[in-house]
Design a binder for these strands. Structure first.
Lengths: 158, 158
DNA sequence: CAGAAAATGATATATTATAACACTTCATCA
DNA sequence: TGATGAAGTGTTATAATATATCATTTTCTG
């Protein structure tokens, strides 16, 4: 069984750090500005293994001493999602960091309803099935949402 | 190409009627009460080829002369979704009638971003891919959301 | 019919998201 | 290099979506 969800002992700070580095690269490539606010929101999202809501981000920023209003957070989120740096989890109204912002992919999200952790996976077999189905009915895909709720291995067994 | 979206000339009233009949059967089988309010909400949803929001339903019921508050609508929606008679489209915060309430299935929703119409499809290949992926990572599925946005054939070609 | 359970009504409020306009920062190029 | 415009953020207000709570009504069951 592959380790979809992070296992004990993984170095989370290092993940966040490398995500930041990659985000900078993506922004650079797109000539987009990775401003302070955007970096803060991105970092907060990446520091969580759960999906984070806009108002949780708002609270976290406020706790850091900023006085921030909803539009500020939503703008940062819009920027980050448009660049593919974070994904919105529709069924949670919440946001989650994307592992692979540098490539097109149809991500699936596994969401544990017990511990709340989220994991992104890429599954060619499923992506192909979706594409094939769309072609079969003459549908031109613009965006796809795949969210799978259930119990992660840890929660199912403990 | 199969006719995912309803074609001209299909008899919509007949669809709604048969959906109602099937809903009654499902409620009967579950010993659940298909009350007036639930029937009205169900019918309003089925009368639309688009996904319908709770507040659109509220407005429609009000227009029919009822004085209805949000909880009433949300309760009917909760009842109907729990029985599988309607599905919630997470990415639209809206509801759509389910063709096959009588069998377990992992539905995909094709949502046209131009005309707003929605179509449900069942795709074994994709369902299997999702199940297989979940097994591969030790994940126990409780619910799956697959929503595909893009252009339906009509909108893409006209 | 009495009593319990289920459903709905009614009021209030929580949560999520955006519109509109003012102000600031940043890139750029004359 | 500093005027200018575009991009980003601040601020206020409000829209859109959803739920908690308690009162009342309806339905089921014995």
């Amino acid at each position: 069984m592959s380790d979809l969800f992070p296992k004990k002992g993984h170095d989370h700070d290092r993940c966040v750090h490398s995500a930041l580095a990659q985000a900078e690269k993506v922004c650079d490539a797109e000539n987009a500005r990775f401003t302070d606010m955007r970096r803060k929101v991105f970092t907060l999202i990446w520091q969580s293994h759960k999906a984070v809501t806009a108002y949780e981000l708002l609270d976290a920023l406020t706790a850091e001493g900023q006085r921030v209003q909803p539009p500020t957070v939503y703008r940062a989120l819009e920027f980050l999602t448009e660049l593919g740096l974070v994904h919105r989890i529709e069924s949670l109204n919440a946001y989650f960091g994307c592992d692979r912002p540098d490539c097109e992919h149809l991500g699936q999200y596994f969401i544990c309803t017990d511990c709340g952790r989220v994991a992104e996976a890429v599954n060619e077999e499923m992506s192909n099935a979706v594409r094939k189905a769309a072609i079969g009915v003459g549908f031109t895909i613009q965006a796809t949402t795949v969210e799978i709720k259930g119990l992660c291995h840890d929660c199912a067994t403990h």
